[in-house]
Design a protein around this nucleic acid. Structure first.
Lengths: 211, 211
DNA sequence: CGCCTCATTGAATAGTCATTCAATCAATGA
DNA sequence: TCATTGATTGAATGACTATTCAATGAGGCG
């Protein structure tokens, strides 16, 4: 197998490589020890680098944490965005794809969920964390409400509120995530997408039939 | 107005009074500064007491935090338990009462929600936090599943899974809580109970009619 | 009134940790 | 080869904080 040149282990590397390396290490450390228990010593050891590097590549520990959250949020967004850009899909199929994305193993696993909720726990009193996640959350909320509107029009559903359904969806996503993190044996990843689809089936029976 | 004797401000007070005072102060501080940002100096100042008192009344800062979480969990449990103990209520009414309890202003307010999620954020890596909340969560999960079973039998609903509905309910509770904390203007407390009832109406139309 | 018990105080202690920085080292181009 | 640039190291610094404890004070009881 031919190696890509950049992957050779050199002592020095480009800032971008190092930043990603530190962000990855931060995710592992926060998942293991939480935000309050994660020290720069832990992070740099996990990354196999020396202490001073964080403050060389990032303005501060806080900045590292912010970029870590941002990186999670971007990864998440990229996943659900891909489905929505496929013009050939119906509104219902796009919504189905959003559900799948939400429970995709790349973002919906123990480690990442632990980090998400570690940040949510701090978000209440840290504007910057709230800002990072809210930007994409609002965007997704609007897109899913729009999809619901299309489905309601298409199925001529009476007494169903698009905004209500999309907010309920959002709550289901977050709530299942939390319970998967806390009670992984009761809330298994493979079942959760089905649970959400069952909800959609109850609200939009013509578009999401049972099972 | 006659004062109750114990409320007189004396320099010394019973350990129980002091512990509650410190727990209340802890809730305020965690809501304001998060778990990592809450120091014993903050807590004791908030409580109007001196630094050394925490380690006199509690084994450690950690123990104070654990008892704070426990106190939140107990308060929560007391609220939904009260409804379930009223034998004259139907299963559907009991479920309705659980929904109301979940969004009761005494527990469902910005301050308390911030503290709940601060603890959830740490729960991933702290067994003691997980244990505190899981004990009651599991109890409630089983009770709500039992209520769903009764409703399904009573309404002869086909293709509805009691466990699935109760897990979905749990996710809705947690998910709406999180979104109320993060986006209070979009997710207003008064509407959230309605959203949950709308879900129940979609699943059990004969027991929870629209509105 | 004293005495005793126990809550309370806050300064001292010991430990942790983010951040800084002078020195070192690798790579690149002249 | 040498010089320059920029990444890397890790010990030193300084700030912060949980915990301890000796001294103090209040309340209750004989």
């Amino acid at each position: 197998m031919p190696r890509i040149k950049n992957q050779k282990t050199t002592r020095t590397a480009s800032p971008e490589v190092r930043k990603n390396q530190l962000i990855d290490a931060t995710i592992i450390c926060i998942a293991k020890h939480g935000i309050s228990g994660t020290t720069l010593h832990d992070v740099t050891r996990q990354a196999g680098l020396s202490m001073g590097l964080v403050n060389f590549h990032f303005k501060s520990k806080d900045a590292l944490f912010e970029e870590t959250l941002m990186s999670l949020a971007q990864e998440h967004r990229a996943l659900w965005m891909r489905a929505l850009e496929r013009e050939e899909l119906s509104a219902a199929d796009k919504l189905r794809a959003m559900v799948d994305a939400q429970f995709h193993p790349r973002i919906c696993n123990r480690r990442k969920l632990a980090v998400w909720f570690a940040f949510f726990g701090e978000a209440a009193h840290r504007k910057s964390y709230r800002a990072s996640s809210s930007r994409f959350d609002i965007e997704r909320q609007e897109l899913s409400a729009e999809l619901c509107r299309l489905i309601i029009a298409d199925g001529e559903y009476r007494g169903v509120d698009a905004r209500g359904v999309s907010q309920t969806l959002e709550a289901l996503f977050d709530g299942f995530w939390l319970n998967m993190l806390m009670y992984p044996t009761d809330f298994r990843r493979e079942d959760m997408a089905q649970r959400v689809l069952a909800y959609l089936g109850a609200v939009f029976p013509d578009h999401f039939d049972g099972q």
